[in-house]
Structure formats: structure tokens, C-alpha cells
Amino acid sequence: MASVLEIQNLQVSYFSREVRSRPVLSGVSFDLMPGEILGVLGESGSGKSTLAASVLRLLPPNGQVGGGAVLFEGKNLLQVSSEELRQIRGNRIALIFQEPSLALHPTIRVGEQVRRVLAAHQSSGKNDLDHRTREVFNRLFAQEADRILRSYPHQLSGGQRQRVLIAQAIACNPALVIADEPTAALDPVTQMEILRVFRDLREHLGLAMIFITHNPALLAGIADRILILYAGQVVEWGPAETALRSPKHPYTKALFESIPAGTGETEKSRKTSLPVIPGNSSPSSLPRKGCSFEPRCPVRMDVCREFEPPLVKLGQSHIVSCFKYKE
């Protein structure tokens, strides 16, 4: 089966006046199958939001793609004209942004905001647009779809606003939805509801999705495959179940261990210090050469300081970037 999206060796840097250009993504490659949900896991500074933005060329003015390709429906999105790109944005690939309270226009009714996305891509008449808008709202809101459609963002709850963002994203029946931390601003119960909406959409619309988050636990039960980013590089990529249950890369392992046991907490484990990853991943503390995780790695070797680790294929589709493993 042909992939929906293929990213090859993507390089992105940010430049500023004080510092020379700083790589944010260096050599990221992966592909996405139709109907697949890929979970992209990364902490702040890993480049996960840059990844989302660079697929649709929405980088801030100081961001620059240094190389690579983003292949979608037979085109390299890094090279298409801006009008062609506009036709793809929101229509074939839709983005869901982080903060639902900031990603909606404050003084336009939410129904109109969805309608305008439709109008930007379809030349159908007013009635058709209204009809389709209503249809999308009915899909996402079990009750009161009509009232919500006429509301302004500030009159809605966080969960409702997030659903409006989803409505905007699916209005044109895209082939791919990229959601960047879509639940970070929500409380757990609302977060659960939104995850349920995503699962439901995949089932009924068959759209492929990139689900970006910093919380590994969120990916359990939603992602098919998981891509783990550290300092702009893929450190591990594999089926969700394997990657979450038995991660291989030292970073992934350490990250998962630092999460408390939750309901598995016992009187003995409670209030004990958690295993942490020493140091931090701020750009200034990254090594110049070798593996970027080496300074914080509990199992580092001499070779890690000198050379970048290769991508090692462990199972059928489980890939790890570490010298500890051999094919």
C-alpha cells in the first residue's frame, strides 16, 4: 500500500541575530499509511511542533528548511507553488493547533469560522456551505450543535472549543490531520472525550493522523505507531504496543521510568524519589558531535561521544538509533 505522507531526511533550522543558525530537525524521515495514526512523542525542544509546521510550510519567518522532502499525493510540498500549497492546506492536510483558546478568531462566530474554511476550498453556493457546516457540527456535537455554531469562542468551554478546531480540520474531508498537542490545555475528563472523538473520526472517515504530544501515556490506545524525537532526531520508531511496553532506546526507557506508577502506586513506592534523566536538553547543553543524548545517557559508551549512532532495525518495523543494538 502506498503511503499518504512520506518525509525524507527533513532538515530545519532557526536562525537569529545573536546565534548562528541552530538545527531544530536534523534528518527526520518517516512515512504514514492511509488511516494510520502516528504518535509523535517529544519533550520541549525536541522539534515536534516544528515538524508539524514544516509539513505545511508554516514555519515562523526565522525558520528555514535546509533540505529533505515532504511527499504528499505525488508532490513535494516543499517545492509546490504557494497557491498550490494553499489549496492543500485545510483541504487535503489539516492542522489542529495547540491552544483551542488561541487558535480561534475571538470576534467571529465559530460556525462562520468553519464555513470560511469550506469556502476557501469549494466554489459551491451559500446553501451548500451552510448545509455542510451544519453537518460537521452535528457530527462533533451531540447536542446543541445549532447553538454552538452561533456562539463566539469565549462563550464555549475548552472542550467545545477543541471540538470546533476539529470541525475546522475535518470540514473538507482531508486525507491527513496533524494535531499538535490537541489536549494539552484540557483536564483529564475532557481530554478523554477528545481522544474518543479522534478515534471515532479515524474509524468513520478513515483519515490518517499525526498526533503530537509530550505525554507518552496519551498515546496508549490511540496511536498505531510511535515516533520518538529527541533534540530534532528520530531516536526510536515502532509499533505503539512494542514501543510503549518495551522501549529500546535509553532515552525512551528513562523517560517512561520517570513517570509515577499512578494506580500501581504502593505504600512503599509512594513518596520515593523518581528515577530522573540528569541534565536537560536545552540547545546549549547538547554535544557538538556524537549522539545528542550521550551526555545524559546512563549506558553511554566511548563510541557515542565520537559518532552519530546509526538507525538499527530491530523488528519488522521497530527502529532505534543507538550503538547498543545490532541488526
Binding site: V189, N215, P216, A217, L218, A220, G221, R245, I259
Partner: peptide
């Protein structure tokens, strides 16, 4: 609603 890592049984 607490998201859980599948340490023990897969959810």
C-alpha cells in the same frame, strides 16, 4: 480518564 502507560496489562 487518567492516561496510562501500558506497564502491566495493555489497556
Amino acid at each position: 480518564a487518567v492516561p496510562r502507560l501500558p506497564r502491566s496489562p495493555w489497556p
